[in-house]
């Protein structure tokens, strides 16, 4: 009898000793989380919302949180999203996971939310307001990596064609800056021409077709994602040999790559951010609500597909979509501890 009591006591002691380690697993089952999203008009954002819905539906079912609603504004406008945030404050959510229309224009609304005791986690398009967490993409690295890869493939270097994104956006500026940094590191490369692709296959196809008559033979095409397949089609239509085009994880890009690989051993690599990064935002918010100590700035991992991983990459890519992956609570915890 006494012995059982002792064991119980020892068990209780062990449990209490272990408690601090489990602090981030504190009960969040009564917490309400909301997704505030500014745009849904392309396949990446569609997949992002779908991933959120699937992952959070399971989390609600498992009793991890009470609710996790997804909200999207009709137009890609900061004012509308600010109004949406204000509504969420009134509705009394515990955490808001935010893909922002503007890095600065929402700061006022975000501050109001923080002051109301709401945890705000911004991801992908982050906000600069200090009270919010940021899960940012290192777009510059995405530029540098492309040149690093090409330097390995073509040690002698050569001229490149650069496809830019939507002019005036910070993403476009950062990837471009990364590419320039890569070229500084590997000066045997030079940008022969740059054209505007708007991250859209049809626009990229037209721009590349228009530059081809005056373009010298290039060794590679550096891209920003969503433009690689259009570039490939333009080269094919002009009857020119297709150079090494860096892809952006879109299904049409990967399918084309696969066809070429089977036919003539075409080699390249592909990279992008998985739309499921919204679920990483969800788990980070859950961890904060559970009391974990989370640094304000986290880095989204890039989803990279190399020659050997192409088949697996294609499996992870829905028809017409972008290569996707839903993040787990464990992966979020790993990301948090690696950032500390």
């Amino acid at each position: 009898m006494v012995r059982t009591k002792l064991i119980c006591l020892a068990g209780a002691l062990a449990l209490s000793a272990a408690m601090p380690a489990f602090a981030q697993d504190a009960d969040t089952s009564d917490k309400n989380v909301a997704l505030s999203n500014n745009y849904a008009g392309n396949s990446w954002r569609q997949a992002m919302i779908k991933s959120w819905q699937e992952a959070t539906a399971k989390a609600v079912e498992d009793g991890v949180v009470a609710s996790a609603d997804a909200n999207t504004t009709a137009e890609n406008s900061a004012t509308e999203q600010a109004a949406q945030l204000q509504n969420m404050i009134l509705q009394g959510y515990d955490a808001i996971v935010l893909n922002a229309a503007s890095p600065t224009a929402l700061n006022g609304a975000v501050k109001e939310a923080c002051d109301a005791g709401i945890t705000v986690v911004s991801f992908d398009a982050t906000v600069t307001e200090e009270c919010a967490w940021r899960i940012a993409v290192d777009f510059k690295k995405m530029g540098v990596d492309q040149i690093d890869y090409l330097a390995e493939r073509y040690p002698d270097g050569g001229p490149l064609l650069e496809i830019r994104g939507l002019p005036g956006t910070s993403v476009d500026e950062q990837i471009h800056a990364g590419i320039l940094e890569g070229i500084e590191k590997h000066p045997q490369f030079e940008i022969a021409r740059e054209v505007q692709g708007d991250w859209t296959q049809t626009v990229a196809q037209k721009s590349v077709a228009s530059v081809l008559p005056s373009l010298p033979d290039v060794v590679g095409v550096v891209t920003q994602g969503g433009d690689g397949y259009g570039a490939a089609r333009a080269f094919e239509a002009a009857g020119r040999e297709v150079p090494t085009i860096i892809m952006g994880n879109r299904s049409d890009e990967l399918q084309w790559w696969k066809e070429q690989k089977d036919e003539n051993g075409y080699e390249t690599f592909s990279q992008s951010i998985a739309p499921g990064v919204s679920t990483l935002g969800f788990w980070v918010a859950q961890q904060i609500l559970a009391g974990a100590d989370v640094p304000k700035d986290l880095q989204v991992p890039t989803l990279r597909i190399d020659q050997d991983g192409l088949d697996q990459g294609l499996e992870m890519t829905p028809e017409g979509g972008v290569t996707n992956k839903e993040y787990t609570r464990e992966e979020a915890q790993e990301l948090i501890s690696s950032a500390k």
């Binding site: 396949s43 708007d198 859209t200 296959q201 049809t202 196809q205």
Partner: peptide, 16 residues
């Protein structure tokens, strides 16, 4: 015709 030209329809192909 645009979908036929660019190898399939996409949501943002009409934007421009």
């Amino acid at each position: 015709m645009l979908a036929a030209f660019s190898g399939g329809a996409s949501l943002n192909m009409g934007e421009e």
